[in-house]
Amino acid sequence: MIKMKIAVTYDNGEIFQHFGHTEQFKLYDIENGKVVASEVVGTNGSGHGALAGFLAEHQVQVLICGGIGGGAQNALAQAGIKLFGGCSGNADQAVEALLEGQLNYDADVKCSHHDHEHGEGGHQCGNHGCGSHSCH
């Protein structure tokens, strides 16, 4: 049996667009390519770097999120968590798309108004607009 745990930055059913500010993750237990359970967990105020540790404590192997800064990307990599960033829309649909190999994500995701153009490469930073917030 192949088991995996996927986390999605979560806000009202949607993928939350600022990893470092997410207050909730939806965690999905996957067995043999299917979602068998899910739960929404609060981060208890953890932010930025602490969130990678939070995910590692919950045995998460994969993260789906919107915008994410370089420091958080490095922390996830050190924790062995595979990142699918630059995503937006419905969280449950994103997990299903990932399981089907159809998830539209940005391998070079950045969330910084200094070097990021919205809509670049067909990917968007979500409806919050990262230009008005610093996401790193």
Score class of each variant (00 low, 15 high):
G42I: 02
Q93R: 12
V8P: 02
D92N: 12
N104K: 12
G45H: 01
E120D: 14
V109M: 13
G70R: 15
A91D: 03
E23F: 04
H18D: 02
H133I: 09
G126W: 00
Y28F: 15
V36P: 01
H113N: 09
D115G: 07
G70H: 14
K3F: 12
M1A: 14
E96F: 15
C111P: 02
H123T: 06
G85K: 02
Q102K: 15
S88Q: 06
K5L: 12
N90C: 09
H114W: 13
G71S: 10
F19M: 01
K110R: 14
D106H: 12
N74P: 01
D29S: 15
E100P: 06
E14K: 07
G53D: 01
F25C: 03
Y28L: 13
F19T: 03
N104E: 08
K26R: 13
G129C: 06
Q78E: 13
A56L: 01
Q102V: 06
F25I: 00
G86P: 00
Q24P: 00
D29T: 14
D29F: 13
A79W: 02
N104L: 08
G80N: 11
F16K: 00
A72L: 05
H116L: 08
G89S: 09
F84S: 02
S38N: 12
H128P: 00
G101T: 07
H118C: 15
L98N: 04
H118R: 14
H116S: 14
K5A: 10
A97R: 04
A107V: 11
V62T: 11
N44P: 01
D29Q: 15
A97W: 02
G70Q: 15
N44W: 11
I6L: 12
V35F: 08
G126F: 00
G71R: 11
D108C: 09
A75K: 10
N32V: 01
E100F: 07
